[in-house]
């Protein structure tokens, strides 16, 4: 099983992408998609050393919903900041201590931070203990860090690194 299907999650995702790309649900396309979904992870095995494991799928869905909601809010907030007076902005670099360890969880956190209210992740410390974040308007740096940790990091940790 492990040898023939190295990434069981990737196969249905790749098949779904193939079906979307062709915009069809014909049996031939489903078969071809599954074949590609099996073959691509198998041939690119060396680029994917770690196995992805989702511990709590419902938590992940909830996390996705929270992030989608935050994206809409982020857009409204950033739009208002852009239209306001630029002199009033107080940008700042804030460094967020990380408790996540796996590559996937850290990259997902960095991506989430980029998509949500007025923050862009800028640099990961070489020892992966700390993520540098640039905020567009930061009146209170500690509240920002606490918000990121509670809202995004905690669910990611539960989903991908549950003990």
């Amino acid at each position: 099983m492990m040898r023939f299907l190295p990434h069981p999650l990737l196969t249905p995702i790749l098949a779904a992408v193939w079906l979307l790309l062709n915009n069809s649900l014909a049996p031939g396309h489903i078969l071809l998609g599954l074949l590609l979904g099996w073959a691509i992870p198998w041939f690119t095995l060396r680029f994917w050393p770690e196995r992805v494991r989702i511990h709590r799928p419902m938590k992940l869905l909830r996390f996705v919903a929270v992030v989608l909601y935050d994206i809409v809010v982020a857009n409204l907030v950033v739009a208002r900041r852009i239209l306001g007076r630029p002199e009033r902005l107080r940008p700042a670099f804030v460094s967020v201590p990380l408790s996540l360890e796996t590559d996937l969880a850290i990259s997902l956190l960095a991506n989430t931070i980029c998509l949500t209210p007025g923050t862009v992740s800028a640099r990961l410390a070489p020892d992966r203990k700390c993520l540098l974040v640039h905020g567009l308007h930061v009146p209170d740096a500690e509240a920002l860090v606490a918000g990121i940790k509670a809202r995004y990091e905690a669910p990611l940790k539960e989903v991908f690194e549950a003990c």
Partner: peptide, 21 residues
């Protein structure tokens, strides 16, 4: 935002957020 804000890091926020939505 890209045209109006005053330093690179703040300019980065406009396009990445607003254009995705």
């Amino acid at each position: 935002g890209l045209a109006r804000l005053r330093d690179f890091y703040t300019r980065l926020h406009g396009p990445t957020k607003a254009t995705t939505l």
